[in-house]
Design a protein around this nucleic acid. Structure first.
Lengths: 114, 114
DNA sequence: TGGCTATTTGGCTATATTGCCAAATAGATG
DNA sequence: CATCTATTTGGCAATATAGCCAAATAGCCA
């Protein structure tokens, strides 16, 4: 990894890291259906408003969402739609993991270890 | 987010978090071309072997890679190919961010702020 | 202006992550 | 068995992240 590659992977990792948190991932997922304000997301996530606001600013800094003020409520929009495929891929990883777990359990059962 | 949803997003976030590190992302990217041993990856990443080994175990625990021993070298394989699309999506986010930056700079130039 | 609601920011503690060194383990080979 | 190479694990210090409360800010409306 030379310097340029390092920078590139740093930038990429920053975007991915922004999604690597349950609440943030949930919010990104919800925003695919349409924009939501901080108060709605706070309600849905079930955490302190300040916490949700900070999560949103992380997503915003990563370029995943943008905000739009309307009166004194702020609506957040998903900026890049391809994030949907993201979740599909992650779910397929989880599915493979699950299959693997089942295979291991079965093999233990066959050997009478469990 | 009810309890079940919370568990689901925790599991998903764990997989994504595993990729949210420059070195790990780089390794996943490299492994798309084919399996590599720890020593090769260590060389490519340019960090301590123990560091690289720990990164690989994180990827392994997330179910993104699997390992296969051959003599006393261990080869790591990518387990789920869809991760390629992942990077494409991330790059498109970065591209949008870049465009945004340029737009902001231009607008400042137009207003003679810079 | 003053009060009201929505959101952001500052500050703090608890917890998690990172990366190195040193030591342990696994397998090959003399 | 001794030794060598490849890898993993333990331990530690530095740093980053998370989430809450309190305080500040932004925009309404009387």
């Amino acid at each position: 990894m030379n310097e340029q590659e390092k920078n590139q992977y740093n930038a990429r990792a920053r975007v991915i890291k922004a999604m690597g948190h349950p609440s943030r991932l949930f919010m990104v997922d919800q925003l695919q259906k349409g924009p939501l304000c901080v108060c709605e997301l706070t309600e849905m996530v079930g955490a302190d408003t300040s916490t949700v606001s900070k999560h949103l600013s992380i997503l915003k800094n990563a370029g995943l969402v943008y905000d739009q003020r309307e009166g004194n409520t702020v609506y957040y929009h998903l900026r890049v739609p391809c994030v949907l495929d993201f979740l599909n891929c992650v779910d397929s990883v989880l599915e493979v993991n699950m299959d693997e777990q089942i295979r291991i359990v079965r093999s233990c059962q066959a050997k009478n270890i469990l």
